[in-house]
Every structure is written in structure tokens, then in C-alpha cells.
Design a protein around this nucleic acid. Structure first.
Lengths: 394, 394
DNA sequence: GGCAAATAATTCAACCGTTGAACAAATCGT
DNA sequence: ACGATTTGTTCAACGGTTGAATTATTTGCC
């Protein structure tokens, strides 16, 4: 119920987006006539809209596909591969990442630099990330795509304007990320890592459902909530703090000050401790080898996770739960325990099953999701891109 | 991101709604010029839109308010009191209710019939409710308002088409409510009691926040989730099952089959049992008299409720929790305990407080909310009402 | 009392985006 | 080679908004 007036121009804006999404979601390059049929706009209107999109470098024509039957061959339309692209950046506990995704969703550049970020000062971290970003941008521009904006994934709570209010496991408090990056002339947005990973998951595949819960297991446990195809960020942008949902109200003390938080049962450190190791690679190896203590630790973590997830599903009624972050490689052993609790505790599970599955993108979900969020913005609002302030060509 | 094409007519539809909402939300009757200034539409356009709305009996002109300064006096615009109205019906464990709310939000008719519905067959209950509805409708029509549709609040899970899939405390399973009511020629929607009560609360006051959690304490515990000014119903319409969120994973068995559900700690029956009485009126009296066992029972229930609510707030990031149903008259004793747990367990509570308060509408929230939902639909989509199939006047 | 200033509402030609029909372009089947 | 068929474009018409001009109605001031 947007309370903005609608003028003639808004019509155009909406329909440009409609056509663009139609091309994006089609299984194969559609013709102008296909789009007209699918949208119930007239061929004349679609032609006019497509012209605008082609001159704006958002769409491109491809050779007509060989067709059966008579008639003039149709020119196929695809999202432009040399149009605008999104730059996705990720700051995590033990790595930095940068990637570029073009309008069609293809990953054109991707680079990860592993290193523990906890001992470093925020300015150092942002400086190195800025270098990664510059490399990515130069690389992309060499391929002929223009980076239209950047999104940064951070494992913490983010306020409007890109201020990281609190990133507990990184030890950050009140860090201005766009300022520290200093990417001149590029629009930079900052968001929670789980939120962007959830968006990545949403766009990774056509069959991802419109509403789901993405659970990101790292040192902390975050969740990205997608409802009806849109990310839900909460009243103040701080939704998804699944790690601090109570599993046992009088359980062990959590560093947040409360007791019995999920993080104490299913956080990365709790699992490693229970399994008697300090390294995730090692944990996976032991689980594969069938080590009983490791298996027991994972079942126990899965059960706790299942209790918390079941609570969320009871309240939100989503039919899919996606396990990401470190949970993704561990999902083989976690899923059964999570599913059992969900089955038992979700009121509607009896006649309407809830699917629990691993992330399709794995560890790259957040950075790819961040880049995808940038191009998705253009895809959903092409008029803003087409009418942007163009850099003066001297 | 609606994927519908936008034609010229959609323009009109949107702007009709815009003007109507502008009138609805104004503190005093605005003039056409006021609306033009507020919406940035031109006065010419607003005049044309207002004409349509007046001839369609959705708006009315009132005498010009005395103005300071020179100039032609402005004709004030108000929502028509003799236009369409909504019929709200409620089926609850121990009463039936019917009410009529006009476009301006005024309750024009309200009647409650107390009786335990559990021993009766669904058909009987629906028959009596149908009588209540007919009386309400006749009463409203005598006052000159036309009932445009009905909404029914039910304490249970509702599928599309108005089928009550499960209402555990009523003992209903697979009951077709619109069919059983048989309100000829009237569009009937059916929804969960907590959902409609949440909508009632949302529209009860201008300062209700756009995102909040409405908790309806009855024999079961339901929740209505309002996000960004809209009710969130879940992927399948079964959101808000707060009563079956786990408070202690290995607590007492719940009739849903799981263990330690909130309902076992803070449901009406659990509270009554812990306080040593069987009647809610008596419970309130004892609490007022300061009976220690009663006060302890309420604190204990409030704490359990607080644990569950804190989990939801951590995940959804709403800044307001409204206690309704039987919790409303008990809120004086429940709120402190709920607030304490929320304060302790919500990660962001430290710098951004979460308000816990009682419902403003109390027991009438669901029926008034149901009626309000009907008129709200017209207010948000006036074009659908204006172009409806008119009954032939012979 | 009369007149200028001010504000509200309506009228009307112009403009913008979509529509639908007519038309041109390109291919297939016979 | 020619008609059938489908794609894509052209163009007059239409619906809805715009902005300026016009009319309507009041206050304030001389």
C-alpha cells in the first residue's frame, strides 16, 4: 500500500520492470510477442518498452531460435551480459570475499582471501577489502561490464547508512563500513550476512520457494527471513537473531547476558567443543569416519537447532528451512535431528510437511547474494538505472 | 513486485485509493487542495478523483471549517458514513459476536451472545451466528449503511475458501463456515481470531506501530503478526501458532503431541490451575486482592510467555508486543514478567527497547477487527467497489 | 460599501503511455 | 511462386494526468 502518487511515468517504470523480469524468468529467450502474450500487454507496447531496455543496455537480442511452423522468426531477448553488474563483498571471521555478478546472474569474478580478521583493526580489514573490490571492479570493467553498485555482507547488526552497530564475533562496534571502504562514486549498501545469503539462496534457483528461513551457522547463528519473495529485515533491520532464541530458559550463560541461547548448543564453537576438536575440517572428517562422539555432538546440536527452528516455523509458517554457513557441509548429519524436532513440534507438520535442506550456494551464499542484490535492484527498478545521472563523457 | 501489467486504468485505481486513504488518515476533514498538496497530484486530478468517490458514496462533503485568513472556504471531505460497511462475526469458545463497522471506522452495531459453544454441533453454532448476522445486517441497513461483506473470526487454522481445518478447543475439524452461514449474496472470508484481532488493534489507533506482535491468550495462545502495516498470514495461512513454541523442550506433554509448549505454562487453563480456581473472573478478583498464589501463577505464566515472545522478537525484530484476549485484563500482572524476560533475552533490547502493552480493544478486538478488515479492503481498493456488479434496481 | 488579495475548485488544451488495427517483414508449406 | 502464418512496427485514438487560465467565494483594508 505505497502512498506515492502514480503518474503516467510510473506506468512506464512498472512495465519496464515487468518486461525485464519476464525475460529474466523465461526458460528460454522469449520474443516480444511471447512477452506480450504472457503479460497481456499489446505487442506495440512491448516493442516500445523493449526498445528502451535495449538502448539502455539492459536487454540484448540473440539469433532467432529455429522454429517449427510458418511465420517470421522471432528475435530472442536475453538479459544483457555487458550491461550493469553488482559488486558483492563479504567480511567474515576468517575470510574476505569479493565477487561480481552480471544482470543475467552469472558470476563474472570471484575471489576469497582467507585470514583471521579478529586480531586486525576494522580500518585494516576495510582497507584490504577495498583492494579486493578495486581488483574485482577493474577485472569486470575489462570484460566490458559496468559495476553499478556494491553490497557488503557483515556478520552483525547493521543500521541505516551502513553503520555496523555490533558484530560480536568480529569485535566490531560502531564501524562505518562505506566510509572505511571509500569506493568513490559507487553506491554502497551494508547488510547482515544471513540476510544477503538468504537472498542469494532465493535467486540461486527458480524452484526456491517464495517463503523460507535461511539459517546461517557460523560462530554465531543468524537467520535470513524471506517472506513472499522479499527479504524481511524487521522494524529496525535487526531481524534474524536466531542464535539468541532460548532453547532452555535456565541453560548455560550466553555471552549476550541471557541463558540457554541456541548459540550455546548449536554454535560452531559448541559443536567443536562437544566433538572434542578445534577445527571444522577435522570435524567433517570425523563425522564422515563415523566417530561416535562427533555424531552425537551433531545430533545434539541438530536437536537444539530443531527446537528453535520449530518455534519459528510455528510462528511464521514457512514450509522450507535452508541450512547454510558451516551447517551446509554438516547438513547430512544435522538435518535428520532438525527434521525430527520440526516434525514433532510444528502443529501443522502433520498434514503439511516442512522441508529442511542444505544451502545450494554453500559458503559463497553471502557474497554472491550481495552482488545479486545489487543487480536485482536494477532488474526490479530498471527506470532508476535508465534515468540515472550519467557520467559526463568529455 | 506484483507481476501484473499496469494500464491507464490501474493509474486511476491506485490514485482513487490514495485519495481515500489520505482522507481517512487526516486528523481533520481535508479539502481537495490539501490532498493535492499532500499527494503532489494536481488539484485538477484530485477534483476528478474526489468526484468519482463522492458519486460512489465513499466520500462526503462537510461544511467548510471556519478558516483564518482570506480565500474561498474549503469544502471538507470525510469518509461516507452511509456508504459501505463491514460485518464482523466471531466464533469463540464461550461466546458468539457480530458487529458492523462503517467506512469511517465507527462501530454501528455490536452484539455478543455468551454461551459455551463446545457441547454444540458446528451446524447449530453457525445457525445461531447466521441469525446474529441477519439481525446486524437488518439493523445496519435501517441506519442507511450497506453491508458490503463479512469476515468471520475463528479460534483455529483456516484454509483458503473458509474451511476451518482444525479448531482444537472448539472440537472442530473440517467445517465449511461460509456454507454453514449461508449469507446469500455476501462475500464471506474466514480468518484466524488472532489475525483479525491484530488487524483490529492495528486500525484502532493512529499510533499503533506498523510492525507488532499481537498475542491472543485464550484457552489456546495465538499470535497475529503485523509487519510493515500488513498482516502476515504465512506461506499457507497458518502463522502465529505461538502456543506451541517450546519453552522447555522436555516439559509437560501438550495435547499437540509435543512437550513443553507455551500453552502448558501460560494457557488459560494452566494459569487457572496454578492459581487454584476455575473461573477467569475469580482469577482477576484474586489478583486484585493480592492473593499470593494467584500473583505467583501470573508471574510464572508471564515469564514463560516472555521466553517465547523474546524468541519471536529476536527473530522478527518487532518493537511492540500487544497482549490481548484474557491476557488483556491480566496484563497488569503479566506485563512486568514478560518485559523482564524480553529485556534479558532480546539482543537488541539494550539500546532499543521493546514495548509490551495490553490490547486497546480488549475482548472485542477480533469481531471489530473482522468488520474493519472488510471496510479496509474497500478503502484500499475503492475501484473494485465502485465498479462492482450493481444489484439491478427494478 | 467597494475593491484588491487570497484561496478553492473547475475547465480545457496539451501531453504521455497504452491500445488496437493496419501494415510491412520474414519464413514455411504446397 | 504464392498464400498462410507469425513477428514486429506504425499510427490514429483513447484514457488519465498536467498546468495554466478561469470562476467562485471569502477576508481585509480603505
Amino acid at each position: 500500500m505505497s502512498d506515492l502518487p502514480v503518474r503516467q511515468g510510473s506506468l512506464r517504470e512498472h512495465n519496464l520492470g515487468l518486461v525485464l523480469r519476464q525475460v529474466a524468468n523465461a526458460p528460454r529467450p522469449p520474443s516480444r510477442a511471447d512477452i506480450a502474450a504472457a503479460t497481456s500487454l499489446t505487442r506495440a507496447t512491448v516493442s516500445a518498452l523493449v526498445d528502451d531496455l535495449i538502448t539502455g543496455r539492459l536487454l540484448a537480442e540473440v539469433d532467432p531460435a529455429p522454429r517449427a511452423g510458418a511465420g517470421r522468426p522471432a528475435a530472442g531477448l536475453v538479459l544483457a551480459a555487458n550491461g550493469p553488474a553488482g559488486l558483492g563483498l563479504e567480511i567474515n571471521i576468517d575470510y574476505l570475499a569479493a565477487c561480481v555478478v552480471d544482470l543475467a546472474g552469472a558470476v563474472r569474478h570471484h575471489r576469497v582471501r582467507h585470514a583471521d580478521q579478529r586480531p586486525r583493526r576494522p580500518a585494516e580489514v576495510l582497507g584490504e577489502l577495498s583492494e579486493l573490490a578495486a581488483t574485482a571492479r577493474a577485472d569486470a570493467e575489462r570484460e566490458g561490464v559496468e559495476v553499478a553498485g556494491a553490497a557488503v555482507a557483515v556478520p552483525g547488526l547493521v543500521s541505516a547508512g551502513g553503520l555496523v552497530r555490533l558484530a560480536p564475533n568480529l569485535g566490531w562496534r560502531g564501524v562505518d563500513v562505506p566510509d572505511g571502504l571509500g569506493l568513490d562514486g559507487l553506491a554502497v549498501t551494508v547488510d547482515n550476512e544471513a540476510n544477503l545469503a538468504a537472498l542469494g539462496e532465493l535467486h540461486a534457483s527458480q524452484q526456491t520457494p517464495a517463503s523460507f528461513l535461511y539459517v546461517s551457522g557460523e560462530i554465531g547463528i543468524g537467520a535470513g527471513i524471506v517472506l513472499n519473495g522479499a527479504l524481511y529485515r524487521g522494524a529496525r533491520g535487526w531481524s534474524g537473531e536466531l542464535g539468541h532464541v532460548a532453547v532452555r530458559p535456565d541453560g548455560p550463560a550466553c555471552r549476550c547476558g541471557a541463558r540457554g541461547c541456541l548459540e550455546q548448543y548449536a554454535g560452531q564453537e559448541a559443536i567443536l567443543h562437544a566433538a572434542g576438536t578445534v577445527d571444522t575440517e577435522d570435524l567433517i572428517r570425523r563425522a564422515e569416519d563415523g566417530d561416535p562422539a562427533t555424531r552425537a555432538a551433531l545430533t545434539s546440536a541438530g536437536t537444539a537447532l530443531g527446537v528453535a527452528v520449530a518455534g519459528v516455523v510455528n510462528v511464521l509458517d514457512v514450509d522450507t528451512v535452508v541450512l547454510g554457513g558451516v551447517y551446509a557441509p554438516l547438513s547430512r548429519w544435522l538435518c535428520p535431528a532438525v527434521e525430527a524436532e520440526v516434525e514433532r513440534r510444528v502443529l501443522t507438520a502433520a498434514w503439511s510437511p516442512v522441508a529442511v535442506r542444505r544451502s545450494m550456494l554453500g559458503a559463497d551464499a553471502a557474497s554472491v547474494g550481495a552482488a545479486g542484490a545489487v543487480v536485482r535492484e536494477i532488474r526490479d527498478h530498471p527506470a532508476r538505472w535508465l534515468t540515472r545521472a550519467l557520467p559526463l563523457t568529455p
